[in-house]
Amino acid sequence: MNKPQKGCNLEKCFLCSNTVPEWRETINLHKQNLKFKKGEVIFSEGQQVTGIYFVYSGTAKVHKKWGDDKELIIRFAADGTILGHRGLGSKMVYGVSATAIEPLVVCFVDIKFFEASLKTNSDLSYKLMVLFAEELDVSERKMRDLAHMPVKGRVAQALLSLEEQFGEDAAGYINLTLSRHDLAAFAASTYETVFRVIMDLIKENIVIVTGKQIRINDRQKLAGLTTGV
């Protein structure tokens, strides 16, 4: 990890875009820009909260321990996204981990300054409350899917979610290169099971795979797997 000099993206950054213009100069005085390599841990589940992170460029996975040796990827954080906010509360420990899945640059502010920002900027407090509500809804749906949706449906849902969040590249592939292990963790399954499901989807001409890149070839059929249609 090192400290590059980067300016804020006022349109995308969760912190800057939800604070009054006068507060942004104060942000510049308190922020640190940190750079992480692919695979480098930003913070770990159970660590004491030291501050909040905002993604400037690159992508991170937000994940949680699942059993003794497994992980469950809760979401992916891209440009402008906030990281570490789930550690807010009476215990002040990070409830999840965050790891860079590609070269990543983040803006970091210490927890005292972030709390001061919340008290000073009502829009920031409101948007954070909405974000917590949205994340709770996603978590509840993920738990429901884990209990009731077969693995093939969960893999299909994972691919559709990734395409919705990251879009497609010029060749039509999902614009995020993801390992099969990470795809399995996002679908709450195992590597071996996801590998078999992907092979089935290829045979059914629902997806096209080139290396680690995946292109959705038949969106209607893929979506049907998430509903049992």
Rank of each mutant, 00 (worst) to 15 (best):
A77Q: 05
T81D: 15
D79K: 08
G67P: 03
A60L: 13
I73R: 01
L83I: 02
F54S: 15
Y56D: 15
I74F: 06
F76S: 08
K70S: 15
A77M: 08
A78D: 14
V62E: 04
A78P: 06
I74Q: 09
T59F: 12
G87W: 00
I74H: 06
L88A: 07
D79M: 05
F76W: 06
A98S: 10
G51D: 09
K61D: 13
G80M: 07
H85N: 11
L83E: 04
H85Q: 12
F54D: 14
Y94I: 00
M92Y: 05
G89Q: 00
M92C: 03
T50H: 11
V49M: 15
G84L: 04
G67V: 01
G51F: 07
G87C: 03
K65W: 06
K64D: 03
A60T: 12
I52D: 14
K65P: 06
G87Y: 01
V96A: 01
A78M: 05
L88S: 07
K91M: 03
V49H: 08
K61Q: 14
T81N: 14
G51E: 11
G95I: 00
L83R: 04
V62H: 00
G84K: 02
T81V: 09
R75C: 09
T50V: 09
V62Y: 01
Y56P: 08
S90H: 02
H63N: 10
F54G: 15
S57W: 06
G95R: 00
K61C: 14
A98L: 04
D69F: 08
A78G: 12
G67Q: 00
K70F: 14
Y56V: 13
G58E: 15
R75T: 13
K64E: 11
L72W: 02
H85A: 14
K91V: 08
T59H: 13
G67F: 00
Y56F: 14
A98V: 05
I74Y: 04
V93K: 05
K70E: 15
V93E: 04
E71M: 10
T50F: 07
K70P: 10
Y53K: 09
V49K: 10
W66D: 06
S57C: 14
R86H: 06
K65H: 10
R86Y: 07
G84F: 03
V62K: 04
V93F: 01
Y53D: 11
D69H: 07
A98C: 08
S90A: 02
D79R: 06
D79L: 05
I74W: 05
G67H: 00
T50K: 11
V55Q: 13
G87D: 01
G84I: 02
D79W: 04
R75E: 12
G67E: 00
L83S: 08
K65C: 06
Y94G: 02
I73V: 11
T59W: 14
S97T: 08
H85L: 06
G89W: 00
L88Q: 07
D69V: 07
G80C: 08
L83F: 06
T50C: 10
